[in-house]
Amino acid sequence: MTLTAQLGAVRGGTARLYLAVARGAFRRYATYRAATLAGAFTNTVFGCILAYTFLALWHARPGLGGYDTRQAVTYIWISQALLVTVAVWGGGFQDDVQDRFRTGDIAVDLYRPVDFQGWWLATDLGRAGFHLLARGAVPTLAGMVLFDTRLPADPAVWAAFLVSVLLAVVVSFGLRFLVSLTGFWLHDSEGVRAVMLVVSMFFSGMLLPLALFPGQLGRIAAELPWAALISVPTDVLLERRTGTALLTGLAFQAAWAAVLLAAGRGVQLLATRKVVVQGG
């Protein structure tokens, strides 16, 4: 099935199905209350530590990278709020897929009437929705209380931010989906996942804003798909991207989302062919 045909099908009656799948995933994650609370606490602790290091850096170099000190501190808290939501570390549906590889159910999954990629995308969006609320809100509030942060008052900025986060999750899904599919060819995709984690943490801007990367490295990093995960959404919320810059930022995310989903689709076809030939 081609991508356009797939989209057509989704636009039809199946949209409701995917919505139900997403809602199911949201609820499933909502049942892990204690773990969510502990996780949000961890985000807060790391947020505090990193915020102090940024304060020290901006104390030495005010206005570094075009961020004022408040923006720099806010950057830390937004990135902590987004860390699990956009799954910079990997995880989410990847763990479920890995389980299905272990049990061998994965071969069957490819032949379900529901589209394989669409199904997992729906679950991941449901998960992200929950994580944005639960693991995003706590660190954001903690940051506001403990530090001098700068969040926008304009609801339009928040709306743009939400769109940007949605696109970030889709890009992240696209990347993680490709990693998971390597399981069809490799004995286990754990090694690939580990490499991806390093790349993703670094190039997303999770550890340091991309604007602080030196010259050529910074320019390249800004064009890579990982920039869509943290760098673009935080810049939207910090109002560093407004007007045309906002639109190009969202377009950048959407373009990577489309490319990665299409690539995932292609690899999925190859995987299906491989399963047919080898019988799973």
Partner: peptide
């Protein structure tokens, strides 16, 4: 690596 990048912008931290 992050520390190294930070120190491209400053000579001392704290």
């Amino acid at each position: 690596v992050v520390l190294l990048l930070m120190f491209r912008h400053t000579d001392t931290l704290g």
